[in-house]
């Protein structure tokens, strides 16, 4: 936190050094001038990351955009088909279905995960500073996704699962968590919530630790209770962290793949769990329709870009109320 405040202070001072009459118009120019001195060193330090970015992100992305305008089955050379893939996509019911079930997953996962994580973080913040507790929250996050998927697949199995044994022993009737269309996607969403809540809670917790203690003290002196302190001080001051967590987990959530791919229903029952990433994977690597898969992927990038932009705008993520 000291670092952030320090650098923003430096920028502010630099901006104020200019002649008084030029403050408004010249500010961007002054900023560029202030940075130029570090430019060479900075580019040197950035080079390894840039090379990696160009090689593993930029180049594949450009190739992907190119493939999206071709018919390509991985084995014979791609040939151009113009916008045919995008026209097909517009009429492809499986694509729209994939978007719909992915959104369903994202909503259930993000809402439950954020609410639970905020609650956990607040409990930790108010009750304990124990490192052990913090580590325990991370345990599900440390388990590989595939292992988590298999674990819950066994626990929730309709015939042989432990959870269904408990339910039937308590007098209920067994549930096909993965095999009932209306339950399959919520089940997968909740499994991933289970896995990521602890991690998200730690991020929120770290954010809470950054809020100056004086604010809580004065709130207490003014007679604010737990709930009021949480809603009036913690939540508003947590906004930048909240924005970061929401953007990252939204993008991560759209990328749901492992749990779906572990499920033997392979996107079923009746397409209920054929999420967008899994659909792209099936198109590209089981149906070998790389061209069309690329078109779906490019469309997803556009959708995610718009969503992220909106989110950052709405949450004013770059500004903190503390500044």
């Amino acid at each position: 936190m000291a670092g952030i405040t320090g650098s923003s202070l430096a920028v502010a001072t630099a901006a104020h050094e200019g002649p008084p009459e030029a403050v408004g118009a010249a500010r961007p120019g002054r900023r560029r001038a202030a940075r130029r001195g570090d430019g060479r060193i900075a580019s040197l330090f950035l080079a390894p990351a840039l090379v990696g970015f160009a090689l593993f992100y930029l180049y594949p992305t450009i190739r992907g955009v190119y493939f999206s305008f071709t018919d390509y089955d991985l084995l014979s050379p791609p040939h151009s088909v113009g916008a045919a893939n995008y026209r097909y996509l517009w009429r492809d019911p499986l694509f729209w279905n994939a978007l719909r079930v992915t959104l369903q997953y994202v909503v259930i996962n993000i809402v439950s995960q954020t609410v639970l994580a905020l609650g956990l973080a607040w409990l930790m913040f108010r009750l304990t500073r124990s490192v052990l507790v913090r580590v325990l929250f991370l345990v599900p996050w440390l388990v590989p996704n595939v292992a988590v998927g298999l674990l819950w697949l066994w626990l929730l199995d309709a015939n042989l699962g432990f959870v269904n044994h408990l339910i039937t022993d308590l007098g209920g009737s067994s549930q096909g968590f993965f095999t009932t269309p209306s339950l399959a996607m919520p089940t997968i969403a909740v499994i991933n919530t289970w896995q990521y809540t602890g991690y998200t809670a730690l991020l929120f917790y770290a954010g809470m630790l950054q809020i100056p203690g004086t604010l809580f003290e004065s709130a207490r002196l003014d007679g604010a209770g737990e709930v009021r302190t949480f809603t009036r001080i913690t939540l508003p001051l947590l906004r930048p962290i909240m924005a970061l967590v929401l953007v990252v987990s939204l993008i991560g959530s759209f990328q749901i793949f492992d749990t779906v791919s572990i499920d033997p229903a392979q996107g079923g029952p009746v397409n209920a769990t054929r999420v967008i990433y899994y659909y792209i994977y099936q198109l590209a690597f089981t149906q070998f329709r790389m061209g069309y898969a690329s078109a779906v992927a490019v469309t997803l990038v556009l959708i995610l870009g718009v969503l992220t932009f909106l989110q950052l705008r709405l949450l004013r993520a770059s500004r903190s109320d503390l500044a």
Partner: peptide
């Protein structure tokens, strides 16, 4: 036979082995 919703996703072998 178990209906689709209540059929194990772990494969027929697991169900037969469990005596179900």
């Amino acid at each position: 036979a178990p209906p689709y919703q209540k059929n194990s996703t772990l494969g027929v072998n697991a169900v037969l082995d469990a005596g179900q």
